[in-house]
Amino acid sequence: MGQGILLSAGADIDFMIHGVFSYELFGQTVWITTTHVCVLIVMLVIVAFSLAANHVIKHASDVPGTFQNIVELVVEMLDKMIGGVMGKFSPKFRNYIGTIFIFILLSNISGLFGLRPPTADYGVTFAMGIMTFVLIHYNQFKYQKVKGVIAGLCDPWPIWAPINIIGDIAVPISLSLRLFANVLSGTVMLALVYALLSKIAIIWPAALHVYFDLFSGAIQTYVFCMLTMTYITNACTTDE
């Protein structure tokens, strides 16, 4: 009584990060988790794709085959996207943005292949947020010099400086939390569907996969790269 027929009580809801094995390092217990394994798998796929792409482009033919077409399509799409936002700074940051774009995209859609998406672990997204943070401030010091950075901190008045510093620190945190929470919400939702509705979850969860893994993952990848590029371009731009 009181229990829905569809809700099979006692089913395991499984979307947490599990430890695979642990080892001791300098007196600390370090766990190798499912996230590490999934990152490794995604990385191996990317490395294999890159090696194949490198081989194909080295022996490029005038009439491109299927794979060469795909590689050229990807590179041209990334170049167009990055050039549209960063303008004259795009050649310097093309490698970084392209790399994180492909990595985040593959990580997000790896949920389709039964992996736990690596971006649903805050450790992964926060690392990317930190990289963006370092890039922003390195380029700010490089292009605007110390004087420009101090002038930027005291933007309306010098009394505003603490608020500007908090705003700077909030950038990587909000950037990484946005990606993390989006992917995690999709993972949790699908885990709940598979665990609680396991009796009737036959074919229709595919529609949810299309939304949560493909659509949401692609949008969040685009947003992460777009915001990274915007912040870096802002840091590079001087007043003159």
């Binding site: 939390l177 946005r178 929470a181 989006n182 919400s185 949008i219 969040q220 685009y222 947003v223 915001l227």
Partner: peptide, 12 residues
């Protein structure tokens, strides 16, 4: 996607 952030904080 940027406007969604505050809602995601609540979700977190």
């Amino acid at each position: 996607a940027v406007a969604e952030t505050t809602g995601l904080y609540g979700l977190l």
